[in-house]
Simulated assay, not measured.
Amino acid sequence: MYSKKFARLAFGLLAESTFISRLTRNVSSKVKPLRSLCSWTVCQHHRQENQLSNGLTRLNVRTVSHTTLDPAEVRKFQAMASKWWDLQGDFSALHSMNDLRVPFIRDNLLNVHGVWQLGKPLTGLRILDVGCGGGVLSEPLGRLGADVLGIDPVEDSVWTADLHCSYDPELRERVRYQACTLEDLAEEEVEGFHAVVASEVVEHLADLDAFANCCHQVLKPGGSLFITTINKTNLSYVFGIVAAEQLLRIVPSGTHDWEKFISPEDLERLLESFGFHVDSIRGMMYNPLTGAWSWQQSTAINYALHAVKRKEEPQPDRVWAESENLNEPGQAKSYS
C-alpha cells in the first residue's frame, strides 16, 4: 500500500516538475555543421595519436583494447535466463517497452532507408540485436520482415531465445541467435548490418568505448544505431533503483548500478567521436501502476536514442597531405 502511494506521489511530482525538456530533441540543420566540426576535431586528435609506422592512419577513431563484457553482469542475467518469456515476471517491463521501441526503430529505419513493403516494412534490412536476452525484441523485429541476428554472452538466454523462436515457422527463417560478445562478432563481420539495436544494454557494459567502436565496425555506412538506456540523474537513482528494485520490485534487486548509467549528452559525445551523427533523443517513462511505457518531454530517467553512422568521415591525413603540397616551392598558398 505504501509503495503504491509512493509511486503515485513521485510520478505526480515528476509530471509537474519544471526541468522538463522538449518531447523530441531532433537535431536541427543549423547544429549539424557544428557537430560535424566538433566530431572532425576529435577524430583528428585520435588519428594523430594512432598513426601507423607507414604513415597511414587508422579508420577507427580510438584504439580500443577492452571488452564490453562485465562478468558480474553476466552472472546476474544467467540467474534469470529462464524467465524471459514470463509476461508477469522480472522482464515484464521489457515486454511492454516494445510498444515504444519497436515503432521507434521501424519508423526511423523507414525514414533513413526509404523502404516500404506492406505488412513487412523492414524486409531486406539486416538488424543486429546486441544483448538480445531471450529474444523479446528480436522476434517483433523479425515479424516486421527484418533479418535479425541476436547475440548475447549468456548461453542459457540464447538457448531460451532459440527455443521460443522455434515454435514460429515464420520467425525461424528470419531470426537467429548466437552466444557471443559484440567484439567477437566484430572480428568476423565488418559493415554487414543496416541497424544495431542495444536496448537496456549499455548500462550493463564494462567499456562503452569498445561498444561504440564495434557498433561502428559492424554497421554499413549510413546504418542506424538504436539505444534505450537510463540517464544518470538523482531521479534515475530514485526511480530506477530505489523504487523499481527496492520498493515496487519491478526488477530484481541489484539489477542496475547507478555508476554505469550515462547521460544523453555524454552518450552523444561518445558516439559523435566514433563517427556517428545523433539524429534524435526522446524521453521515456514507465508507469508501474499501469505497466505501460510512454514518451515524455523529460529524459531525466529513461531515454531512446537514434544515431546514424556517417557515410563519409573527415580524412585529416588527406587534408595534411594537400596542405604539404600547397606549401611546396612553386605552389601558391590558398586561404579560401
Rank of each mutant, 00 (worst) to 15 (best):
L128A: 06
N108T: 13
Y177S: 09
S280M: 15
L248P: 08
V175E: 04
S82D: 10
E312F: 09
T255G: 03
S294Q: 13
D209T: 04
L13R: 06
L52C: 10
V175P: 05
K30S: 00
W293E: 03
R176T: 13
H95Y: 06
K232G: 04
Q315L: 06
N302C: 07
L52S: 08
F261D: 03
D279L: 15
H306N: 15
E139M: 04
L326H: 00
Y2T: 06
E203R: 01
L69M: 08
T57Q: 10
R172P: 00
G134S: 10
F19N: 13
T67V: 02
Q297L: 01
H216R: 08
Q246P: 00
K4N: 02
I262R: 06
E313D: 04
R62T: 11
G134K: 09
A179H: 05
F211W: 07
D279F: 08
A332E: 02
L87A: 09
M97C: 06
V319Y: 04
D266L: 10
A161F: 01
D266Q: 12
L125V: 13
L267Q: 12
C214E: 12
Y286F: 15
E173I: 01
A72R: 13
A10W: 08
L271Q: 09
G240K: 02
N54R: 02
W320I: 14
H113E: 15
A304N: 03
V130R: 02
E268F: 11
R174Y: 02
L305D: 09
L109V: 14
Q297F: 05
K309E: 06
F261S: 07
V218K: 11
L305T: 10
R310V: 00
N325A: 11
L109A: 14
D152E: 12
L205V: 13
S263L: 12
I281E: 12
T68D: 07
F261H: 08
G223R: 07
V27L: 09
W293K: 04
Q178K: 14
Y303C: 07
D266S: 13
S3R: 13
P314I: 11
Y177C: 04
I262V: 14
R8P: 00
V64N: 05
L144F: 12
V130F: 05
A332L: 05
D207R: 07
R47A: 09
H256V: 08
Y237M: 03
T41N: 06
S17P: 00
L235W: 13
I262P: 04
L235A: 12
R172V: 09
I301K: 00
